[in-house]
Design a protein around this nucleic acid. Structure first.
Length: 280
DNA sequence: CCCATTTGACCAAT
DNA sequence: ATTGGTCAAATGGG
């Protein structure tokens, strides 16, 4: 971590970036013009390889102490010549923040403006995370009792923005749902919504647009791919042709800043109901 | 009473 | 041993 990147290293990164960007463009082309899944999957995999490689390189080259800093090569730093004594505290200190669990299978990470995503979640835990200012909150699908195993982890970003790092684990197997959210699993409902959104309201649902959460940005994929995520997240709305500036999502008046959800330890409480109150 | 959140304890991964 | 993830009793709101 102390070493600076060599010229070769920098060139390697540069080439990887070029490759990744080109692949990304290719992927965009493919998504626009074809339904050829295999080709798209291939590109997605290539892209992921580039991203992972860059991630590894960057984490090794930078002094970044967060998340990526656990370059495995540095793990043995306590094996110094005279450093054989137990000295639990100091050694442990060096490793603080390096702990990282094995990445869960079938997880997708997104950066979003709001934790609201149309699904009903129930909070089941909250943890202070080392080296993170904000706690991480753990949610499971409200319909867990029906066998739905979808999980979600939310943590506020620390870059000053009011955005959230959200990890989805598993997929909804429940029918979930609260009116508009059916769009996620029902393409018909989705197109219907899109058609009606343009000024005209969908009558049979008192909820309609006002209950839609805001995500003006397309969720930013930080890693993993979204190839299997369309059914339970916002990527579905990319089918919008990409040309529309129509705000598909509308802000929910949360009554308080996102900050408050974290400081008082509750995203869902404090006057903001994730489910019924919002969607009915 | 039911359901959701809070939060400390427990467990598993590293 | 430390950290992250989950459980479950306590608590509270509707």
């Amino acid at each position: 971590m102390m070493e600076s990147s060599s010229p070769n290293n920098k060139r390697l990164i540069g080439e990887l970036i070029k490759g990744r960007d080109s692949t990304q463009k290719l992927l965009n082309l493919l998504r626009r013009k074809t339904e050829n899944d295999s080709a798209e999957d291939l590109v997605v995999n290539i892209l992921r390889s580039f991203s992972d490689s860059l991630s590894v390189l960057n984490s090794c080259n930078s002094g970044d102490s967060y998340a990526g800093s656990a370059c495995s090569g540095d793990r043995t730093l306590d094996s110094g010549d005279s450093n054989k004594k137990p000295a639990p505290a100091p050694v442990v200190k060096e490793r603080r923040g390096c702990y990282k669990r094995r990445k869960t299978e079938d997880s997708r990470i997104k950066i979003v403006d709001t934790i609201e995503d149309g699904f009903a979640w129930r909070k089941y835990g909250q943890k202070e995370i080392l080296n993170a200012k904000s706690p991480r909150c753990y949610f499971r699908c409200t319909h867990k009792n029906d066998g739905c195993k979808a999980l979600k982890q939310v943590q506020k970003l620390e870059d000053g923005s009011e955005k959230f790092h959200v990890m989805y684990i598993g997929h909804h197997t429940c029918q979930n749902v609260y009116n508009n959210t059916q769009m996620f699993s029902d393409p018909g409902a989705l197109s219907s919504f899109l058609l009606n959104f343009d000024g005209t309201k969908v009558n049979d649902s008192p909820s309609s647009p006002s209950t839609i959460t805001n995500v003006q940005n397309t969720p930013l994929m930080e890693q993993e791919d979204d190839s299997n995520a369309q059914s339970d997240d916002l990527v579905a709305f990319n089918t919008n042709g990409g040309q529309s500036s129509i705000p598909i999502w509308k802000d929910i008046d949360m009554g308080s800043s996102h900050e408050e959800f974290f400081t008082n330890g509750s995203y869902l409480g404090g006057g903001f109901r994730f489910q019924e109150d919002v969607f009915l």
